[in-house]
Amino acid sequence: MGNLLEHMGIEKQRLHFSWISSAEATKFVNVAKEVTNAVRALEPNNKFVKTLD
């Protein structure tokens, strides 16, 4: 899915996959940080944005 999104022009760093158990709070925090850092490093997204008028 990530590959197909990238194929049509959505940066791969915007989609993350992880398996976190409900007992793994630290892992959750780390992954959340990683995700936000990866997305912040990109330009703001203007694709797949629907404008309602």
Binding site: H7, G9, I10, K47
Partner: peptide, 17 residues
Amino acid sequence: DVKKIESLSIEDKWNYF
């Protein structure tokens, strides 16, 4: 044909589709 699209930049891919 797939490789041709893969070789485009991320912006060009978006514009291609």
